[in-house]
Every structure is written in structure tokens, then in C-alpha cells.
Design a protein around this nucleic acid. Structure first.
Length: 298
DNA sequence: AAACAGGCCTAAA
DNA sequence: TTTAGGCCTGTT
């Protein structure tokens, strides 16, 4: 695989720092930030780039721009940050150190020859370039609690309101800040019936009844899910999303309405995600993207 | 206007 | 153990 490396660092005409990073494989800024895993990024219009997204993660404002690939087909990415932040935050956040080419091959070869493998190959080709972001676990937990029975624009709106009202400097609020907000304060942000769920999550995390560090270090997926499901409003789907996007448990395989449709359409005789092991979550993103944004190859 | 949106909780068989 | 309603709100 090709490891990411800094080609150039500098400042824009406006004095904002940037780094130009090569060796990013087939990494796609567009697919990664358009596949619904992160709620605090929005597309921005920069004519020089194929795709650009701007947002906040880990308390830092950042922009990711998809530049043209180098002569070997390796993606170059412009990141609006210091070289220091690239090394300490964004390299890891974007999972640029993962060998996705190898993962993609493993996913395809884990599916039996014939119809099913053809379907999976099509999904992988369609979603190739997506990276599972390594997001903050608490932010992820609250975000996916909010996502239930909801749509993306409103999810984003609520999260923005949470950050503005209860976060420091517009950052994502801490558990204790949300406890202080109280269920009423959370309800006032138009969270609806999820206010009690958010409050319960904040309380249990802040009291240690649900220990996120323990979840992070636990190797047993079912036990991890069990711990998170102690929170009201956290069930199989939300816990799977949180474990996948917020804890790097890539064996998680969230099944929502889109995934259900995708599996029914492409694998009518059934699909066993456990055979994919640690790659199940990545395959899930491909199948999800294939169904939702590419119409499932109809 | 009525249905739906990246689920989960609760009550009832 | 499984199944059906209901749920805040905003948009179409």
C-alpha cells in the first residue's frame, strides 16, 4: 500500500494553513463525507477541486479538498490544517493508514463465487474510496441517538444547536454539559422524544455507569453492544453505528431501512455478514452507499 | 393532507 | 419471544 506523506505545506493567500498530502490511495473526500457517517461536515464550493468539505472534529475546524491523483493514480488531498494537526489528528481521523485496497479484495473474496460475489463486487466498485472515519465516541453516540426516526438535515440542525448552546467555543458538548442542560433544555432544541434518550446517555456516561473507555478496550463485540444498550434509546442499529464510527469496531454491521433494502435486493437468498469478520462494517458502508446514492445498480 | 424520515420503547399476546 | 402502535418535528 501507499502511505500518506506531506508533499507541501504552506499558507493560502488569506493566511490559512494547509498541507498537501499524497499517497492517499483511492480515498474519496466526496464519498467519505457524503455517506452519512459524519454530521458536522458540509460541502463547500471550491472551483479548483472535485470535492471539498468543511467542518469540525475533535475541536478543530478543518477543510478537506480532493485534488487530482498523481501519475500512479494515488489520490492527493489538500487539508486546511497545520502539518502538525495532520500528523496528530487528521491522518488517523481519515484512516489514511489503512490498506483499503487489501480490505476491498478481502471483502470480495469472502463472498462465495457466482451471483453474490458479482453483487458484492459491484457494491465495492461503487463505494470504493469511502473511509470509515475515526470519530469521537461520545459525539458519535449522541449523534446516532438523534438520528433515529429522523432525517439528515434535521439531525445536522439539532447537532449544530447542541454545539452552539451547550458546547464550549462551538465544540461538541461534554457529557456533564448535557446533564446540566437537563431534559427540558434538550427538548427545547427540538430534539423531540429523543431528549430523554440524550439525557440518559449523558448521565450514564458522566456517572461512569456506561464507561466509554471500557467499551473502547473491550474486544468482545456483543459485550460492547450490551454496554451501550444500557442507555435508553440505544438499540441494535444505533449501537452498531456508534461502535463502527466512534470506536473503530469494524466488525459492526448496522442494518437500517436502507441496508435492509440493499440486502433484500442484492442477496435475496440471505447474507451472512459475520463471514466478513473485521471487514463487515466497511462492506456495510459500500452496500449502503450503493443502495442509497447509486440506486442499487438498478 | 398525509406520509415519511438511517429506531426504539412499551404494552399486549 | 415476537408484534403492533406511537413518538417530536420538519419537509414534501
Amino acid at each position: 500500500m501507499n502511505y500518506p506523506y506531506i508533499i507541501e505545506e504552506g499558507c493560502t493567500a488569506l493566511g490559512e494553513k494547509f498541507v498537501k498530502v499524497g499517497g492517499c490511495g483511492n480515498f474519496s473526500v466526496l464519498k467519505t463525507f457524503d455517506c452519512g457517517q459524519a454530521f458536522r461536515f458540509d460541502p463547500i464550493n471550491l472551483q479548483d477541486y472535485k470535492a471539498a468539505f468543511s467542518g469540525v472534529a475533535f475541536g478543530k475546524k478543518v477543510t478537506f479538498c480532493e485534488d487530482t491523483p498523481d501519475t500512479n493514480g494515488n489520490r492527493i488531498v489538500i487539508i486546511g490544517s497545520s502539518a502538525n494537526d495532520f500528523d496528530s489528528i487528521w491522518r488517523h481521523y481519515l484512516a489514511l493508514d489503512e490498506d483499503y485496497d487489501a480490505i476491498d479484495k478481502a471483502i470480495i473474496s469472502a463472498v462465495p463465487y457466482g451471483h453474490d460475489r458479482d453483487e458484492m463486487t459491484a457494491a465495492v466498485n461503487c463505494g470504493a474510496g469511502i473511509r470509515i472515519l475515526r470519530q469521537d465516541s461520545f459525539e458519535c453516540l449522541i449523534s446516532f441517538i438523534i438520528s433515529q426516526n429522523n432525517n439528515i438535515p434535521r439531525i445536522k440542525k439539532i447537532i449544530t444547536a447542541l454545539c452552539e448552546k451547550y458546547g464550549e467555543n462551538g465544540n461538541f458538548p461534554t457529557p456533564s454539559a448535557l446533564v446540566e442542560a437537563g431534559e427540558d433544555g434538550l427538548f427545547a432544541l427540538r430534539t423531540g422524544f429523543r431528549a430523554g434518550y440524550i439525557y440518559d446517555a449523558a448521565s450514564k456516561v458522566s456517572s461512569g455507569e456506561v464507561n466509554l473507555a471500557e467499551v473502547a478496550s473491550c474486544e468482545d463485540y456483543n459485550r460492547c453492544a450490551e454496554m451501550l444498550c444500557k442507555i435508553k434509546g440505544v438499540g441494535p442499529k444505533v449501537s452498531a453505528c456508534v461502535l463502527l464510527f466512534g470506536f473503530g469496531k469494524t466488525e459492526a454491521f448496522p442494518i437500517d431501512v436502507w441496508m435492509k433494502r440493499s440486502l433484500e435486493r442484492h442477496f435475496p437468498s440471505g447474507f451472512d455478514h459475520t463471514s466478513l469478520g473485521k471487514n463487515a462494517g466497511i462492506a456495510q458502508q459500500y452496500l449502503f452507499y450503493y443502495e442509497r446514492w447509486a440506486g442499487g445498480g438498478k
